[in-house]
Design a protein around this nucleic acid. Structure first.
Length: 500
RNA sequence: GGUCCGUUCGUCUAGGGGUUAGGACACGUCCCUUUCACGGAUGAAACACGGGUUCGAUUCCCGUACGGACUACCA
């Protein structure tokens, strides 16, 4: 029997969770649920300088809103606590020392400034500096210095880092679930820093150690990690551990032109990149959230799932349960996907129509009587993308027209329609049952009696009552306005047009 | 610059040695609706380029171009 599947989503609390991160979390969640595995949330906060207050809660809230909650980890607990890397600091030191002792890693004393200077020199010569088998002997580290020197310098309290001693001539290969075999020569891999001088591990070390300890079987993460995957393989090898199965997801790209989707593009395009609204605690800048814009969680999930994956059938609308059963790593695409707001909106419209009318009415039209609110929801549900448009629609509907659509008036206001409106104005007060069907037959009869064709006046009537040449069913609208209001509007319109 | 990854309609994608290259969004037209929207139908719209392998390549291989990621004591 194979090991039980365990996956993790491991964001850094450096700000709001980006929509690409949400998709990564979603794919992890889907795989875990499909295969009866465990979905773990771990926080990678090893960079103290980039820590942002509130970001961790934001991540949790965002996942909660979308319904992709972890089974284990932050906010849930579990057998491998703590799940915040800053709280596991001591652990990484142990493993880094293990690598030192086995000769797989070494101490380095070069300062950032020295390295920067080194890079500048190489760059001026048109090449790139690498801290590797070729250069490390000439730099300040435990490989180039005598053992005594190293002991002295450490004892003196000089800051140091621990670097991985990358083998000089080897080929690293691994089979990615999405990209198949990837191979890289170690000559292109740097002796990466494993432990920083502040005693914190870098991503690479912490990630590998935690994934191993937490028994992660599949690492599903963004493509930006692909270049460092060979380094991670090297680390697993150095520890003598079995690496997990890797799956590097294609990137989410900006809608216009090329490049990774960023917050800036979103602002330009007028759509969010964050699931929830986010206020940057440093700058106070507020970024839009999909939730606040009116996107439904189920629509977001469906839309996101299809950005880089598809079931191979022609079905597009998938509930989360359907996604879980249809999902597989094998059907994830290789190429990056551009974020298309139109498609997102379409998904939202589809899910909006599926919403319960009663609860939409209660939530978005709370000030209206229940029955009336529900009528409005019925009237407008097919014409909106976001639920909060209901309020705007109703407001617009309820207010007296401030102007009349000029083009329609121009074309339709004539002797016959004038006569028709006048007939209606005179007779409508006598409608007994003010209800759409009754109003309709009443109008039919009255216009016929007057010898006026219905088609000649209906659009004029619409403009007279609503101001617009197009809109929801007129008879139902009239029912909702009520007799008094209709007559008021009709009067006003006749008066206005009559002056022309 | 170097390393790695990628490339099918405008966008998301299906497909895969022989297909009318399929679907969805967006767009056009028509139908439904005395309007609009919804819905339905329909149209326009793609295999980056060049070599090779092959009877045959969009599909396999190699190059080129283009795009992207990475190249920090950031993740």
């Amino acid at each position: 029997m194979s090991k039980k599947l365990r996956v993790r989503f491991a964001p850094s609390p450096t700000g709001a969770l980006h929509i690409g991160g949400v998709r990564t979390a979603l794919y992890n969640y889907l795989l875990a649920h499909k295969l009866g595995g465990t979905f773990i949330l771990r926080i990678e906060d090893t960079d103290q300088t980039r820590f942002v207050e509130g970001a961790e809660n934001y991540i949790l809230d965002a996942l909660k809103w979308l319904g992709i909650m972890p089974d284990e980890g932050i906010g849930v607990g579990g057998p491998h606590e703590p799940y915040r890397q800053s709280e596991r600091k001591e652990l990484y030191k142990v493993y880094a020392d293990e690598l030192i002792n086995s000769g797989k890693a070494y101490y380095a004393f070069d300062t950032s400034e020295e390295l920067d200077a080194m890079r500048a020199i190489y760059e001026s010569k048109g090449s790139a500096f690498q801290y590797n088998a070729l250069t490390r002997v000439k730099l300040k580290n435990s490989l180039s210095m005598s053992e005594q020197e190293v002991q002295d310098i450490i004892a003196s309290g000089t800051p140091y880092v621990i670097r991985l001693k990358v083998p000089a001539k080897a080929e690293i290969r691994f089979q990615d679930s999405i990209r198949d075999w990837v191979h890289v020569h170690t000559s292109s891999i740097d002796d990466k820093v494993l432990m920083k001088s502040d005693g914190m591990p870098t991503y690479h070390l912490a990630n590998v150690v935690d994934d191993h300890i937490m028994e992660i079987t599949h690492v599903i993460r963004g493509e930006e990690w692909l270049p460092s995957a060979p380094l991670h393989i090297l680390l697993y090898q150095a520890f003598g551990w079995q690496p997990p199965q890797f799956a590097h997801l294609p990137l989410l790209l900006k809608p216009e032109g090329n490049g990774k989707l960023s917050k800036r593009d979103a602002d330009l395009g007028g759509f969010p990149v964050f699931p929830l609204e986010w206020k940057d605690p440093q700058t106070g800048v507020i970024s839009k959230g999909f939730k606040q814009e009116g996107y439904l969680p189920a629509a977001m999930i469906n839309f996101l799932a299809f950005l880089g994956w598809n079931p191979g059938t022609e079905q597009e609308l998938f509930s989360i349960d359907e996604l879980i059963s249809a999902f597989s790593l094998e059907r994830i695409n290789k190429a990056g996907a551009k974020f298309d707001v139109n498609k997102a909106k379409w998904f939202n419209e589809q899910y909006l129509k599926l919403q319960d009318v009663t609860s939409l009415a209660a939530q978005y039209l709370p000030d209206l009587p229940k029955k009336e609110a529900e009528s409005f929801v019925h009237l407008f549900l097919d014409r909106i993308t976001f639920p909060q448009e209901l309020g705007e629609k109703v407001k617009e509907f309820t207010e007296l027209p401030s102007a009349y659509e000029e083009e329609v008036v121009q074309n339709k206001w004539n002797e016959e329609s004038q006569k028709g409106l006048q007939v209606l104005n005179d007779t409508l007060p006598f409608v007994e049952l003010w209800e759409a069907d009754a109003i309709k037959s009443f109008i039919q009869v009255k216009l016929e009696e007057a010898g006026i064709k219905m088609g000649k006046v209906m659009q004029m009537l619409r403009v007279a009552l609503s101001g617009n040449g197009a809109g929801p069913d007129l008879m139902i609208s009239m029912e909702l306005w009520g007799k008094e209001q209709v007559l008021l509007r009709l009067n006003k319109a006749i008066e206005t047009f009559g002056k022309r």
